[in-house]
């Protein structure tokens, strides 16, 4: 009986060990990662201004997410989430919910920020949140993407408490404060949207009058 148990233990260990070893997926590029980074950086046109080239710099979150193919171990993820939560800044007046009509416009705009010499955006082109690229929001807009979850009835389901408003603001400002390596951009961290613009999108999500919460 004891022998049987011992044998069983050995067998289980033998079966589990390789599975555990396999679980750690190799970082993209493997042993060529360093060469690849160098090659990637050297691949851009010399005419790109320096301030464009800074867009290739990776912060710790980007580097770590790449290393784990956007699926970091929980401990690593928690560290990144703390790091990102510490970056969140609020509007000077402290008001986190703005005008849903402004938010509706921003949610639909997908232009802005394109650089290069072939098809850049004209200077000063308005940058939006491009929320519909990935999320369903107002029922009437059928051209929505599915990379992110549906946000239809966001406020209707969750209510409009201070906590919910703050959560929505924080999530848009820095999505990685909640789920490290999510596909969602960090709109506030990168100054892609201003704190004020974020409050408008928060209103679009939460205001009971917003089309997100009608129909």
């Amino acid at each position: 009986m004891n022998l049987k148990h011992a044998l069983f233990g050995v067998l289980v260990a033998a079966a589990v060990m390789p599975a555990l070893a396999q679980k750690a997926v190799e970082a993209p590029g493997g042993k060529f990662a360093k060469d690849a980074e160098q090659m990637f950086r050297a691949s851009f046109k010399a005419e790109n201004p320096k301030y464009w080239m800074t867009r290739l710099d990776q912060d710790e979150t980007m580097k770590t997410c790449q290393q784990y193919r956007d699926n970091p171990p929980r401990k690593v993820g928690e560290k990144l989430e703390k790091l990102n939560a510490a970056t969140i800044r609020y509007p000077v007046d402290g008001k986190l919910i703005g005008d849903w009509k402004e938010g509706e416009k921003l949610a639909a705009v997908g232009t802005g920020g394109h650089i290069g010499f072939i098809q850049p955006d004209p200077p000063g082109r308005v940058r939006g949140g491009n929320c519909y690229a990935c999320h369903e929001l107002a029922k009437k807009e059928l051209a929505y993407g599915t990379i992110g979850p549906s946000l239809h009835h966001f406020g209707k389901v969750r209510g409009n408490s201070e906590d919910i408003i703050k959560y929505a603001y924080d999530k848009i400002y820095n999505s990685n404060a909640f789920s490290a390596c999510t596909n969602m951009p960090r709109f506030g961290l990168h100054n892609w949207l201003t704190p004020e613009q974020i409050t408008h999108i928060v209103a679009f999500l939460i205001d009971p009058e917003s089309p997100v919460n009608k129909d």
């Binding site: 590029g29 980074e37 997410c65 193919r69």
Partner: peptide
């Protein structure tokens, strides 16, 4: 392998990589 590295490489003001989409 270097292509794979670039495929997962995140950077820029939208935190994009090829893999995101």
């Amino acid at each position: 392998r270097m292509g794979e590295y670039i495929f997962y490489r995140r950077s820029g003001p939208q935190d994009f990589s090829c893999s995101i989409c």
